[in-house]
Simulated scan of single mutants.
Amino acid sequence: MSEILKRLSEQGVSIWLDDISRERLRTGNLESLIREKSVVGVTSNPTIFASALSKGDAYDTQLHDLKVRGVDLEEAVRAITTYDIRWAADVLKPVYDATRGVDGRVSIEVDPRLARDTDKTVAEARALWWMVDRPNLFIKIPATVEGLPAIAQAISEGISVNVTLIFSLERYRAVMEAWLTGLERAKANGLDLSGIESVASFFVSRVDGEIDKRLDKIGTPEALQLRGKAAVANARLAFAAFEDVTNSPRWQALAAAGARPQRPLWASTGTKNPEYPDTLYVDDLVTAGTVNTMPEKTLNAVADHSKITGDTVRPFYEQAWNTMAALKEVGIDYDDVVRFLEEDGVAKFEASWTELLSTVATELKKA
């Protein structure tokens, strides 16, 4: 087992892999990562599935059967993706059992083209929950304005939710409000709150990517000194907001009824800028009660040379506020940044879904 990843896990950070493929499942690679690299969860997205489908022969039999049956394209996509998610959930079930349902989780997202439609998002969340039919599933719902009531509704029905595409502190607070509302409704409906899990995926590296471009354009020494600092500061303040909520009487009442915290999940933690350490968004976001979902390249980098020195979030709230204040002072419009990132994120999710549809269509023709 990697000693560094073991130390990270012992700090209270759940290590999830941001990747899934049938090849990884059928070769036992996922079991190896659980055993050797402290992986306790998996996230997926359409781009990951499209990449997996275009490599090797792992999907050939199912693609042939879908073609013979005349299944339409979108149903074929759901049949393929839910098969892998169900398999991964079964592989991770021992982790789920050992952690009493906290980890051992696998995420699948609703069609991102529905991100601005509350009712259709809820309907698809229900359908995916039924299709996969595993207790350790997370349904990924984007944190758009329209997604917020869908999040509350899904949770109220006992569907565990991974809220994705969060960039701003204001939207994150709204996500936590939706989560609390959903739990309160679930309690009123007589559901067992201890069986409803949720994580809130706060995106990290994309924040630096956008703000760094704006800092470069401003070009002053004061601006350039702030490159690579916004994303970590933003995430640290998100955790401070999480602590505010979990210290509230409203949450305490739900916790007393068996509810579990909606853990912050650090997403987009692969470093995009080669000038920055490749473990930056792991090393600087270590604190108990969080999840870090990493692409395999980042996971391997952390295992090789990460420096895990203790909590790197809670002691740095003041520094984070100072960073955000300095960004504003040099001319960074935070509200405009996060608004752009959400719109861009939804567009990228839609594009990756279209890519997945195209890939499946191509593979069906060849089957």
Rank of each mutant, 00 (worst) to 15 (best):
V337Q: 03
I308T: 07
S198V: 11
S358M: 10
I141A: 03
N162Q: 01
P274F: 10
I211L: 09
V71L: 13
S14M: 04
E243W: 10
K297Q: 13
T99G: 04
R126G: 11
G258T: 02
E31N: 15
G56M: 00
A188Y: 02
G270R: 05
G56L: 01
H305V: 00
Q319R: 15
T269R: 02
V207L: 12
L357P: 04
T121C: 04
T293Q: 01
T287W: 00
R24N: 09
T287L: 06
Q62F: 04
A351R: 10
S168I: 08
H64P: 12
F349S: 10
G270W: 06
E329K: 13
V175I: 04
N162K: 11
L148R: 11
V132Q: 05
D244Y: 02
R263K: 10
A320M: 05
F203A: 02
S198P: 09
L114C: 09
A320W: 04
A238N: 11
A367V: 07
S168W: 08
T144M: 05
Q11D: 07
V161F: 07
I211Y: 08
S160L: 06
N300L: 12
V291R: 02
S306Y: 11
D103W: 00
S38P: 00
V77K: 12
F316V: 05
L183N: 06
N322Y: 05
T287E: 03
E318I: 08
V337A: 00
D84C: 11
E75A: 14
V110Y: 07
T323E: 05
G147Y: 13
R86G: 15
V145D: 15
R173A: 12
G182Y: 05
L33H: 03
V39Q: 05
V286S: 08
I308Q: 01
S168T: 12
Y96I: 03
R7T: 12
L114W: 05
E329D: 14
V330N: 08
D65V: 03
V207H: 02
E10I: 00
V132N: 11
R250D: 09
V91Y: 07
D333K: 08
E3M: 13
V13Q: 06
A326V: 02
R314I: 05
R105D: 07
G310I: 01
M176H: 12
V207Y: 08
R263A: 00
Q319C: 02
S107M: 08
E74K: 15
Y317V: 07
D333G: 06
G258V: 00
L364G: 07
M176L: 15
Q11M: 13
W130N: 15
Y317Q: 06
D19G: 11
D119T: 15
L114S: 10
T27A: 09
T43R: 00
T27I: 07
A367D: 12
V13F: 07
A301Y: 02
V286M: 02
G219T: 00
N189H: 14
Y83I: 14
V42N: 05
E109R: 07
V40K: 12
N322W: 08
T298N: 02
F202K: 09
A288Q: 13
A154P: 09
L5H: 08
E197L: 14
G331D: 11
P149I: 04
K348F: 05
